[in-house]
């Protein structure tokens, strides 16, 4: 059964530290021989979950009680919940009402509803008013592309202004799934973030969070948003080994990180993504306890108090 046997597990344990230290040194990152002191494990605020049915297949945890139980098992104690119904439906007042009711009925104190408005549908302003005044939602979530507009829509500036005046958070979703596996009936544009920059510059009080946003290939739109606006970012789309750490940690010589850790929030994109994906990202990158606390809950609390 076994050829030249090697206790690889022992090899991993024995050699990993030195090899990793070499790799870190090559990358210019600091390496210290001492492990951090054990720390209390903080709870997590998930800023990107979505309720009800994904239009194209059943998801494993698309029943709200199942999703809530799943989140609790992983120490997620608060989740900002949008609704899949906002992707394709026209009666968003009804969708938002159902979302609010679902969070009350099954949220178990964990779910905070984020309704939606669709700039392409008439009288979206009243949907915004209802979200705020009737349902007491802390924010709204946009799904450009699915909602048949992009960020050059002439009403977007006014929506940003109105959410700022009402003290609402505005979440903008850049992607829901890999376009290569879209249902063939869907032919959605890639959402260009650049029109957001001047709009947010004009409304510095706006609290805008970008969901499932990776930036363009060159990273120029991410850089502009970081440098010229106060936008917040959720990291479920930051793909690649160690990508989270690479984006928020100082570079060689203390160079400024691409994104300040203080503006990054945990987002799972559940139930479409496994909750485990976002959680594992927190452990894949070598992050210190302070940074983990910021990502897990402190930044979210600054954006939306308990």
């Amino acid at each position: 059964m076994t050829t030249l046997s090697l206790p690889r597990r022992r090899f991993l344990c024995q050699t990993a530290a030195s090899s990793a230290a070499v790799a870190l040194a090559r990358a210019g990152a600091p390496a210290s021989p001492s492990a951090p002191a054990p720390a209390a494990s903080p709870e997590i605020v998930d800023t990107n979950v979505t309720l009800f049915r994904w239009p194209f297949r059943r998801l494993k945890h698309d029943a709200t009680p199942a999703l809530v139980a799943k989140l609790r098992r992983h120490r997620l104690t608060e989740a900002w919940a949008g609704t899949y119904e906002a992707l394709l439906q026209k009666d968003l007042a009804g969708a938002n009402e159902r979302l609010a009711a679902e969070c009350r009925a099954h949220g178990a104190g964990l779910l905070r509803p984020f309704g939606s408005v669709n700039l392409a549908w008439p009288d979206w302003e009243d949907d915004l008013r209802r979200c705020h005044e009737e349902h007491r939602m802390p924010g709204v979530r946009l799904f450009p592309g699915y909602q048949t507009y992009d960020l050059s829509h002439p009403d977007l500036g006014r929506l940003i202004q109105l959410t700022a005046e009402r003290g609402l958070i505005l979440q903008i979703v850049f992607q829901m799934e890999d376009p290569r596996v879209h249902h063939p009936l869907l032919n959605l544009p890639i959402i260009d973030a650049r029109p957001l920059v001047p709009l947010l510059e004009r409304t510095p009080a706006a609290r805008v969070q970008l969901l499932h946003f990776a930036g363009n290939v060159a990273g120029t739109d991410l850089r502009a948003l970081v440098d010229r606006t106060g936008a917040w970012f959720e990291f479920s789309r930051w793909e690649g080994n160690g990508r989270l750490g690479q984006l928020i940690r100082p570079g060689p010589g203390g160079a400024r990180p691409p994104v300040p850790a203080s503006r990054v929030l945990f987002g799972s994109h559940a139930p479409y993504f496994p909750v485990e994906t976002g959680l594992l990202r927190l452990f894949e990158s070598p992050l210190d306890v302070e940074t983990l606390h910021a990502l897990m809950h402190r930044n979210a609390r600054r954006l939306l108090p308990a």
Partner: peptide, 23 residues
């Protein structure tokens, strides 16, 4: 900071520890 050490315990989040990943 040991680059291999997890600053928090993954088991607290319903995840395998590094030893369990190795296993």
């Amino acid at each position: 900071m040991d680059p291999l050490a997890f600053a928090l315990n993954p088991a607290d989040y319903g995840l395998p520890t590094r030893e369990e990943l190795v296993a």
